[in-house]
Design a protein around this nucleic acid. Sequence first.
DNA 1: AATTAGCACTCAATACAACAGAGTGCTAAC
DNA 2: GTTAGCACTCTGTTGTATTGAGTGCTAATT
Lengths: 343, 343
Amino acid sequence: MSLGERKKTILRAVIIDYIDTAEPVGSRTIAKKYEMGISSATIRNEMADLEELGYLEQPHTSAGRIPSDKGYRFFVNELMELQRPSNYEIEAVRNFLDRTTIDEIDNIIKQISKILSNITQYTSAVLSPSVKKSSVKSIQLIQLSLTDIIAVVITDTGIVRHCKIKIPRPISSNTLIAINNMLNEKLAGLTVEDIDLSVISSIQLEMKGYDEILNSIIPVLNESLKSFDCDIFLDGTTNIFHYPEYNDIEKAKNFLSLLEHKEKLLDIFSEDDSNITVSIGKENIYDEVKECSIVKASYKIGDKTLGKIGVIGPTRMNYAKVIGILKYLTDTLNNMLKNQLDE
Amino acid sequence: MSLGERKKTILRAVIIDYIDTAEPVGSRTIAKKYEMGISSATIRNEMADLEELGYLEQPHTSAGRIPSDKGYRFFVNELMELQRPSNYEIEAVRNFLDRTTIDEIDNIIKQISKILSNITQYTSAVLSPSVKKSSVKSIQLIQLSLTDIIAVVITDTGIVRHCKIKIPRPISSNTLIAINNMLNEKLAGLTVEDIDLSVISSIQLEMKGYDEILNSIIPVLNESLKSFDCDIFLDGTTNIFHYPEYNDIEKAKNFLSLLEHKEKLLDIFSEDDSNITVSIGKENIYDEVKECSIVKASYKIGDKTLGKIGVIGPTRMNYAKVIGILKYLTDTLNNMLKNQLDE
DNA sequence: AATTAGCACTCAATACAACAGAGTGCTAAC
DNA sequence: GTTAGCACTCTGTTGTATTGAGTGCTAATT
């Protein structure tokens, strides 16, 4: 069922105004502020229809209307005009990036996240690339003392992981090098999740006589790689205080508590792979964000999705702006990663 | 000027009660709840004296008294009885530690911080060891591609830092090993802050002919080590919502904003070296924490102070408990570090 | 038939007064 | 020196009246 042109215009006006002011929007406001050429009474009738259709709702009888989740959804899908970042914002991004050493992927994505929360004034989140889905590029065993080794693993996605390994008794540096070479030979090119028992036993087979030492290294290394897969970084966590809907201490608390529960955020940001997704209010699965909206995008290198970057804010979010910025930033990020990692 | 015994008893009772209830404490409450054997009128007189002396204050005439910063200070210095952790709490610490792989120092201190905020229900912070004051234990250059190197530096304090280095043109693996050996030889044992121009030029002198390659490696490595010295990790940031003094949205916002400003926290946690310090309310330098108290302690390995661990909460903080737990946790932590790093 | 002016109605928010209660300081008695 | 008693102060709560924004409906207008 499609809305008449005039209803669309009115719905758009209500949503834009509400996003701007956080106050229920009345028919007079629409008539005056958005020169419609029709009277408030007519608008009133239209708004009553829009409410009946589920696009608007009324906090109480004597208040104006506010958009429903369905209203925002329609706005995002069909009404809004995507907002390209302003020159000022593009300039800000440049400045930001110039001021930091951009070397490793973690730093890059953290920095991008900071920019994102800064420009949008919402909370931003980035999901680092999955270790399990990365493939091993290089492993290095560094001997620290007679019985201590640091293993450093570098992946094709630019992640550097290290873990400390205690070995039961001293080994010669030649042995260590031999083991190191073997690990590289056997594991390089494999994704971390592909490292399973068969791979491990093939290594053990080939290095008969080093059982004890291998048994102290491989399980620890394996565990360390698999124990935590990706990390999530937040920025602008106190930005919500800019928005009056969070003047209610309970809501603020609820929101901020979510941010402390990384597992939930991981869950939210891990799903699906499509390009830019918007989930509005009750569309979200977790209760904690049923009054929030989340806009997220994937960043990738070539065709391979590495991780996610996104924004969490009130359902009354400036979607047009956020989506515009997010598009721009993921493009920027993708380019940077291409230059960094692809050679 | 020393307080009479009875005044002390009353002051202690007021503070304990206020820490417990967050409500101004009246004379009748003291008389009834803390069986003093004297009437409320007498207590009233004593409290008036304590107010005049600056240990208590009155929000308004018809309210009870609340402790002043000076009152808390006196309490901490002379009145309170340090509270040893309960068996239950000690058990909780054990459980917590058992459930995590305790390998590298960052993980250990993060975990301890989590325990601390969990038990105290305040916000905890840990300051990681200073890189500048750590000495280099081992450097490893790992070749990733023809023009990409990852340098891994390990310090005596257990920090593992890595940075990516682009080199202008390909070098042989033998050259890389030679450079690697030279770096280890020249830098191992030095603290990071000791790596200055003279050291660098001594390396360059000894490796004549590799100028170009050294010039691409050493400055980046040096910069990466010195660019950020120590990190601060927080836990339990939303714990403040447990305390009614932060029901005021402005105060909560103020507090949480501070937590986003790592530089300020670094500053607060970096100063001085003594064992356990308590700074109460206006004793703090930064405005943002003039209504908070901070309790912090150093963790060390042997005699060498590595970093700090502490708690930030309202001035109405359970000092006896917090200090008790903090003592216990730093002891635990110091032991763990000794076992980890000392061999 | 669509639009609009007009009006009665609703409801949240604000302001104000009255009141209760906790706690004090002071005085006088013990 | 201590305490009982009492007048006084001030906050917080409750109840009531008022205001004002905004609606829905009806009747008049185009």
